[in-house]
Amino acid sequence: MIALLTFAKDQTVGIARVLGLTLYYIVRGRTDRRVVLEQMWEIGNRSVFFVIVTLGFLGAILIFQTSFQSQRLFGDVSLVGPASLPLLCRQLGPALCGLMVATRVGTGIAAEIGSMVVTEQVDALRMSNAQPVDYLVKPRFYASLVMIPALSVIGVFTAWMAGLLVSTAVYHTNPSTYLNFGMVRASDAIEGLAKAVVFGATIPVIAAHSGLEARGGSEGVGAATTQAVVNSSLAVIALDFLIGGIAFVVKAA
């Protein structure tokens, strides 16, 4: 237990250090726009298909199961579509998208940086007066900060539309009944976007930290990749809970 707590503390301190250095170089360093755009393509565009497929199926399952229970209990599914939109905007959309991106993008970042560490490319960067966090982490941080909220919006839209297909095909709901925005508030969208931005800032930092900690050869890179997925996923879930709690308190006040 003590070993686990020590490990958790070391990981947290290490991640905080990478985050601090990233913010420092955002303020002090220069940014290569070309590299940021490349990373936006890698993190955003190349994740779109994955997010659409996973969020589409999850949205369809969500609406199917909710409609099934709603019909059994109330004999009516007309509120399922309108009621599911705030849930998707505020909670499920950003969280599921964050988890998906943590697996696809987080592993990519950790594996790439980890490989650079074990083949001494990171040492070569340091010899070239290029700080690894400035050169490797900052562009990914910028890219992720923009693209994860964008992916979340696409994910929410896809999930809700997949639900529409299920609702009309299986439960014969009128599309105009399903496509009712009356239950969603601006605060739901703001909370969802806030979560997506925080996940966008967190995932690349955590994944990069795991990569920078890689030791040994390919085994070390594998371990770093696994660590990146575990840490990023835990962070997404914990931050989702935390931001959700803060939003609840703010709204109640």
Partner: peptide, 16 residues
């Protein structure tokens, strides 16, 4: 490091 350079065991060139 401006005055003291290093050639690494691996070539350590950046692939991109």
């Amino acid at each position: 490091r401006k005055r003291c350079a290093m050639v690494f065991q691996h070539s350590t060139l950046f692939d991109s």
